[in-house]
C-alpha cells in the first residue's frame, strides 16, 4: 500500500463518517445552546432579583462552574452519577446535562452583566418622558440589553461548540474518535495522523469562525 496520507480521507466513506462524527458533537452543542439560552435568561434575571436566597443559589452554581473544569463535571455525571444512583446515562445525555449546567451559568452571568450595564439614567429618562415601566422596558431597556448581550451570547455559542469536543474523553464516538478509527485502518500510519487531525482542526474552524465573525460584526455595528 503506497497511499500517501491524505488519500486516506477520500477512501470509501471515511470523510462522510468524519462529518458524521462532527454532527454528533454539533447535535450536543445545538441542544445545549438552546437550553442554555432559555435557562440562562431565567438564571440571569434571578441573579438580579432582590431576594437573597435565589441569588445565593445562583452564586453557588456559578462558583461550582468556575472552579471545576468541564471535563471533571462530565466525569462526575457520566461515571459518578452512574455509580451513585445507578442511572443509565449515555455519553451524549451526560454531555448535554453537564454543558447545559455550565452554559446556563455563563449565559446567566452575561445577561446579568448586560442588564446591569445599562446606566440608571436610561430608566430615569424614560420615566421623565412619561413612559410606563413596561414601555420603558420594551422600547428603551430591552433593545439596549439585547445589543450588549447578543454578541457575547454568540461567542458563548462558539465556546459551547468547542467544549463539546470533550465528549471524546467519555467515549462518545465523535469526530476525533472516527479520525482515530480511520487512522487505524492503515497500518502504515505514516502521514495519516497529520492529515486526519489537520482536517478535524480545519472542520472545527470552518464551523466556529463564521459564528464568531457574526458576533464581531454585530458588536461593531451596535457599538
Amino acid at each position: 500500500m503506497q497511499d500517501s496520507g491524505i488519500s486516506i480521507l477520500f477512501k470509501g466513506v471515511n470523510f462522510q463518517r468524519l462529518l458524521g462524527g462532527l454532527w454528533v458533537t454539533m447535535r450536543i452543542a445545538l441542544i445545549t445552546i438552546a437550553l442554555s439560552a432559555v435557562l440562562g435568561l431565567v438564571f440571569g434575571l434571578v441573579m438580579l432579583s432582590r431576594r437573597r436566597a435565589p441569588r445565593a443559589i445562583c452564586r453557588a452554581w456559578l462558583e461550582i462552574v468556575r472552579f471545576m473544569p468541564q471535563l471533571v463535571l462530565l466525569y462526575l455525571v457520566y461515571f459518578g452519577f452512574a455509580r451513585l444512583f445507578g442511572w443509565d446515562l449515555d455519553g451524549e445525555t451526560s454531555a448535554v446535562i453537564v454543558f447545559t449546567f455550565w452554559g446556563t451559568a455563563e449565559m446567566g452571568d452575561l445577561v446579568r452583566g448586560a442588564v446591569s450595564s445599562i446606566p440608571l439614567h436610561q430608566r430615569e429618562s424614560a420615566a421623565a418622558l412619561g413612559l410606563t415601566p413596561l414601555q420603558a422596558s420594551r422600547y428603551v431597556l430591552i433593545p439596549q440589553t439585547v445589543r450588549r448581550l447578543l454578541p457575547q451570547a454568540i461567542n458563548l455559542s462558539t465556546r459551547i461548540i468547542k467544549t463539546t469536543a470533550l465528549v471524546k474523553m467519555i467515549n462518545v464516538t465523535e469526530v476525533l474518535k472516527v479520525g482515530q478509527q480511520i487512522i487505524g485502518q492503515f497500518y502504515r500510519l505514516r502521514e495519516a495522523p497529520f492529515w486526519v487531525y489537520l482536517t478535524i482542526f480545519i472542520l472545527y474552524f470552518l464551523i466556529c469562525w463564521p459564528i464568531s465573525a457574526l458576533a464581531g460584526w454585530l458588536e461593531k455595528r451596535w457599538a
Binding site: 462558539t158 471524546k168 476525533l176 478535524i200 482542526f201 472545527y204
Partner: peptide, 10 residues
C-alpha cells in the same frame, strides 16, 4: 475558533 483538544492531538 478551535478546541484545545484538537490542537493537542494535532
Amino acid at each position: 475558533n478551535t478546541p484545545l483538544l484538537v490542537q493537542l492531538f494535532f
